[in-house]
């Protein structure tokens, strides 16, 4: 394995560990925190994949993923804060 493939493997292990926190999490905000951390780690994995294969269009996917992760986290947080009343 090259260095970058090893890095990808380690990040995958971290994602699985954070997923355990998301499943165990006593409150819903713990699950949101885990979702935020997983989204940051997936952006890193996509960039590593783009560096390994040498194809730069994968970076656009990473950019869209960053925007969607941010919007979904803020939307769910606001939804819980208003107790489901989104008007």
């Amino acid at each position: 394995m090259t260095f970058l493939e090893t890095t990808l493997f380690v990040i995958a292990i971290y994602i699985v560990l954070v997923l355990v926190r998301v499943i165990l999490g006593p409150t819903i905000w713990d699950r949101l925190l885990g979702l935020n951390a997983i989204s940051a780690k997936i952006i890193m994995s996509i960039i590593i994949l783009s560096l390994i294969t040498g194809q730069s269009y994968l970076l656009d996917v990473a950019l869209v993923y960053a925007l969607l992760g941010f919007i979904s986290t803020v939307l769910i947080a606001r939804f819980i804060e208003k107790k489901g009343d989104i008007s």
């Binding site: 949101l32 986290t73 606001r78």
Partner: peptide, 18 residues
């Protein structure tokens, strides 16, 4: 740059919601 701007905002949204 995008993630450095949005990361504190989402942390702030979660903490404020709790």
């Amino acid at each position: 740059i995008l993630v450095m701007i949005t990361n504190p905002l989402s942390t702030h949204a979660i903490a404020r919601s709790a």
